[in-house]
């Protein structure tokens, strides 16, 4: 190719006045083997550009998997929530006596219990005699020993 032309293009190239087509011409010239010796210094530059353009994005385009994943996470979350709701039993609030019985009932129950307690105490008083009895039997037992 006309060497003179290439030299001119290189000069224009460094002044950034070349067109895309002219730059393509330069790239093509330097990609060939018979580069003029005094121009060889520029070869790495143009060859690098050609090489750099070949670099590819090799990772997958990350659209489908991530979207689906998110969708299913929300579905799963809702499912778990529903199951939880189904089996959830609220702890009942503590039941007080006042809720279950009328004041009259409570009063009569209190009376009955008081009666019971009184009689019960009478019973325990009777038991006191038993205690005396045991003391005396114990006296006999120690004497015999």
């Amino acid at each position: 190719m006309e060497l003179h032309n290439i030299e001119k293009l290189i000069e224009k190239y460094f002044e950034a006045t070349t067109t895309v087509a002219e730059e393509e011409k330069l790239r093509r010239y330097f990609s060939e083997d018979d580069v003029a010796p005094h121009l060889e210094q520029h070869a790495p530059l143009f060859n690098y550009f050609s090489k750099a353009k070949k670099e590819r994005f090799t990772k997958p385009v990350p659209l489908k998997p991530r979207r689906n994943y998110l969708k299913w996470v929300s579905v799963a979350a809702i499912a778990v929530f529903m199951v939880g709701l189904y089996f959830y039993q609220p702890t009942p609030p503590p039941v007080t006596l006042a809720d279950e019985y009328t004041p009259e009932e409570i009063e009569s129950a209190k009376e009955a219990l008081a009666l019971l307690a009184m009689n019960f105490n009478k019973g325990t008083e009777q038991l006191y005699h038993l205690e005396e009895f045991e003391k005396t039997t114990n006296k006999f037992l120690t004497k015999n020993n």
């Binding site: 460094f14 950034a16 210094q41 520029h42 530059l45």
Partner: peptide, 21 residues
Amino acid sequence: AIRVALSRARKTVREKLMEKH
């Protein structure tokens, strides 16, 4: 501005490349 930046960039690369050579 683009042309200036481009010209500067190209020349810098050329100079540095020559230095290395």
